[in-house]
Amino acid sequence: MQAKDQVDYAAFERLDIRIGTVVDVQPFPKARNPSWKVQVDFGELGTRWSSAQITAYTPEQLVGTQVCCVVNFAPRNIAGFLSEVLILGVTGDDGMIVLLSPRSPAPAGNPVH
């Protein structure tokens, strides 16, 4: 896979990436690709919803998990559902999404540096 064009640090600084804790996971049968509706708690920022293609994980595995999320993208309407944050992940060897999570617990809402 080829690297994307270089950007300056200011472009990265514009992203608001925060740690959140998954508090609810619901089926999303209307999504074009297999997905969950995921509610994430960001502490003082409150809770927000995401449509996430993280179906390698069961709802039971996800609830309580800390995740890295972009919280300042404009909300997107995905099959009639308003996705407010982007949960970050990487494609694994099996083609499924692997979540990006802090190695140790961190307070919900803390920014990624």
Rank of each mutant, 00 (worst) to 15 (best):
V71Y: 01
G46D: 05
R14M: 00
L100W: 01
N72E: 01
K37S: 08
D41R: 04
P29D: 12
F42Y: 09
P102I: 02
V63K: 07
G43A: 12
N110C: 15
P34N: 10
S51M: 10
A56W: 10
W49S: 11
P102H: 11
L82E: 15
P111Q: 03
V22K: 08
L86H: 04
V23E: 10
T58V: 08
K37P: 07
L62A: 02
P29G: 10
A79K: 15
I97C: 06
R48Y: 04
P111S: 04
F73V: 09
G109I: 07
A11D: 05
R18V: 09
E13M: 13
V23H: 05
F12T: 02
G89S: 06
G46L: 05
R103M: 12
S104E: 15
R32G: 07
A31G: 10
Y57F: 06
Q6A: 13
A56S: 12
P29V: 03
W36T: 08
L15F: 00
V38P: 10
P107E: 02
W36R: 07
T47K: 14
M96W: 12
Q61M: 12
T21G: 06
V112M: 13
P111E: 04
P102Y: 00
V67R: 05
S83I: 00
R76G: 02
G46T: 01
R32V: 14
L88R: 00
E60I: 08
E13W: 11
A108V: 11
G46K: 07
A31Y: 09
A79N: 14
R48L: 05
E13I: 03
L62K: 05
T47W: 09
W49P: 05
D5Q: 14
Q2N: 15
L100F: 03
V71P: 02
E44Y: 11
C68K: 10
V70H: 00
Y57K: 03
T91D: 11
N77H: 13
I87P: 04
E13H: 06
K37G: 08
V71N: 00
V23Q: 11
A10P: 09
F73D: 02
G89C: 00
S83K: 06
F12K: 03
Q2C: 08
G109A: 10
V112L: 14
A52I: 07
V67Y: 09
M96G: 11
K30W: 02
P107T: 04
I54A: 05
I19L: 05
L62H: 04
G109E: 07
T91S: 14
G80V: 05
V22I: 15
K4T: 12
F81L: 01
V63T: 12
Y57I: 06
